Every structure is written in structure tokens, then in C-alpha cells.
Computed example of a mutant assay.
Amino acid sequence: MANPSLSTRLNKAQPYALGLFRIVVGLLFTCHGAASLFGVLGGAAGGGTIPAGTWPGWYAAVIELVAGVLVLLGLGTRSAAFVASGSMAYAYFTVHQPEGLFPLQNSGEGSALYCWAFLLLVFTGPGALALDQLFAPRGASRSAQEERQEEATAVTA
């Protein structure tokens, strides 16, 4: 029997790579929220915390903390990622974009990257290693992405 092609092996690892991507992005986003709300990891904007109820910073920090934890754990990933993506789009267009047209000019790379990373998770789902899989109905543990991969493999075979 022939060795599976590199493409086939990479396709089999794709859900795990996506799961690790989700975990890392969720962890980093959670750290931003925790820094702003609790003053840990250097605190908000060079130290300290954001006063409770301050618009929009405190609300953004709550979204970062809650959505980050949900994405990290893989619980309600698509919904949490949608909210997180929207909050980062808002941050980019209200805070960064008025300072310059491009993210490199306006220090908005982080907001832009988080926005697009979370939007990707909205469409791909959580990948492997998500707690959502524990609560899925017994026969529904396979993702639509895994089914598409099998179909593509069957077509190319």
C-alpha cells in the first residue's frame, strides 16, 4: 500500500491545528481582558485597571475576558467568536482607524488580527479539543468540516 500523501496527512491534522489556533487566540484574548479588569499581567495600558462601567473600555474588557474564555474552552465558539470579532472591528474603526488609514500607521494591527482570527472561527467552528463536543448529541460529534474533508478525499481518490 502506498504512503498517504502529505496533503492527506495534513488534512487529517487540520481539526487539531484549528483547535490549537482557537486555544491560543482565546488565551491571548482572555489575558487582555484580565489585564484590563484585574490589573494582572501589567494591567491596562501600562498598569492599573479600567474603572467599572467606563465606556467603551470596561465593556470591551468584559467581552475580552468572557468571549476569550469561551473560545479557549470551545464552548459556544461560533457565537463567542462573532461577538469578539465585532468588538475588535469596533475597536479598530473607533480607536485606531481615525489615527491613520493602515494598521501599521495607527497601531491597530492587534485589533485587526483579532477581528479576522475570530471571524475565521465563526466560519470554521472550534476544531478539535473543544468542550462543545462533550455536549453534542451522540451522532453529531463530527463537524461539517470533517465531512467535507472526507468528501474531498473520496473525490480525489
Rank of each mutant, 00 (worst) to 15 (best):
Y90M: 07
G86A: 14
L41D: 05
A84K: 10
A84V: 04
G19F: 01
P51W: 14
V40A: 09
A91I: 04
G108N: 08
T54F: 11
L121R: 09
L120C: 12
F38H: 08
L28H: 12
A61G: 09
L121N: 09
E64I: 08
T124F: 15
L70K: 00
I23L: 07
R22E: 04
G46S: 00
L72R: 01
A60E: 01
L120A: 14
G46N: 00
T49L: 03
F93Y: 08
P98F: 05
Q105P: 02
V66M: 12
T49P: 00
R22V: 06
L121D: 06
P126Y: 01
A34M: 09
L65R: 03
H96V: 10
G39R: 04
R78G: 11
S79L: 15
F123K: 13
G68H: 06
V95A: 15
V40S: 10
L119R: 15
T30P: 04
T30F: 08
I50R: 01
A52P: 00
A45Q: 11
R78D: 13
P126C: 12
T94G: 14
W116P: 06
V122R: 15
I63H: 05
A45T: 10
P56I: 07
F29C: 11
L41G: 04
V71P: 03
R78M: 10
F38K: 05
L72M: 13
T54M: 00
F118L: 11
A60R: 02
C115T: 12
F29Q: 02
Y114H: 11
A80Y: 01
Q105A: 15
F93N: 11
F82V: 08
L70D: 10
V83A: 15
L113G: 10
R78A: 11
V25Q: 06
L70Y: 07
L65V: 02
P56A: 13
A35S: 10
A84G: 12
G43N: 00
S87D: 06
S111Q: 14
I63N: 08
S111C: 15
R78H: 06
S85N: 04
L41V: 11
G57F: 09
L28W: 04
Q105G: 09
L70V: 07
A35K: 06
E109V: 14
L27T: 10
F123V: 05
C31L: 15
G19E: 00
G48H: 00
A61H: 05
G26L: 04
S79T: 15
A61T: 03
V66I: 12
